Amino acid sequence: MNPLRRPCGAHVKIPRPRAAGFAGWMVPSVLLVLIPKCPACFAAYVALASGIGLSIPVADGLRTALILLCAASLGFLAIRKLRRVIQNHSNRQSSVLNKR
């Protein structure tokens, strides 16, 4: 029997690719780096990319919302990573204590 073939209905857990985790950090980071400081430049970039003209107050609000969204996303990813590190550390300590 071929070891690569599984019986019908056998579920295989497929790990998430590392690229997806990397992209989760890179997309908000790159957006934060590329967002212009002035609302007029942001409005011009939106107009060039989509053909939609924005007023300066709307562009300023949209730019601020995008910055907050990117910062919240990075904060969520950092907290999730920190929780995993703490959980792994506590699991290692409990396994060491159980061996004694």
Rank of each mutant, 00 (worst) to 15 (best):
L62M: 07
S94H: 08
P17I: 07
S95M: 06
W25F: 06
A72T: 01
P15G: 12
N2I: 11
H11T: 12
Q93M: 09
N91T: 09
R84M: 07
S29A: 12
P17S: 15
S55Y: 01
G75F: 07
G21V: 10
A65T: 00
W25Y: 06
L69A: 10
F76R: 05
P28Q: 03
K37L: 08
S29R: 07
H89M: 05
N91E: 09
A47F: 04
P39R: 01
T64P: 01
R83E: 14
V30A: 07
P36M: 01
A23D: 11
G9V: 12
D60M: 02
I14V: 15
V27T: 04
R18Q: 13
V85T: 12
L82W: 13
S95G: 03
M26E: 04
R18H: 10
L62Y: 00
P28E: 02
A49S: 06
G61I: 00
L32C: 02
L48Q: 13
R92S: 09
S90C: 12
A10V: 05
V12N: 15
R80P: 04
A10G: 06
N91G: 05
Q87M: 10
P36W: 01
N98R: 14
P3H: 15
K99G: 11
P36I: 00
L69W: 02
P7A: 15
L32G: 04
M26V: 09
G21A: 11
S95Y: 02
P7Y: 07
I52M: 00
A19L: 13
V27E: 02
S55G: 06
S55D: 12
P15N: 09
Q93G: 00
L32H: 02
S90Y: 12
V33G: 02
R16G: 12
F42T: 01
I52Y: 00
T64G: 08
V12P: 14
L34G: 04
P7M: 06
L54V: 02
C70D: 05
A10K: 10
R6L: 15
A40L: 02
I35S: 01
Q93E: 13
D60N: 08
L54R: 01
F22P: 01
L97Y: 03
L97R: 13
V12E: 15
H89G: 05
T64K: 09
R80Q: 11
H89V: 08
P36T: 01
L74I: 03
C70N: 03
A19C: 08
A65H: 04
N88Q: 13
S73L: 03
Y45N: 08
D60E: 11
P7F: 06
Y45T: 00
P15L: 14
G61R: 10
L32V: 02
W25Q: 08
A20Q: 09
L74Q: 03
I14Q: 15
A59L: 04
N98F: 03
V30R: 08
R84D: 11
N88M: 10
H89A: 14
F22G: 11
V33D: 03
V30W: 04
L48F: 09
A20L: 10
S50C: 04
R80W: 14
W25K: 08
I35K: 00
K99D: 13
L82S: 08
A43T: 00
A71H: 02
S55V: 00
A10F: 14
C8L: 06
T64M: 07
V27N: 03
L82V: 09
L48G: 14
P3E: 15
A40I: 00
L97S: 10
K13A: 15
S90Q: 14
K99I: 03
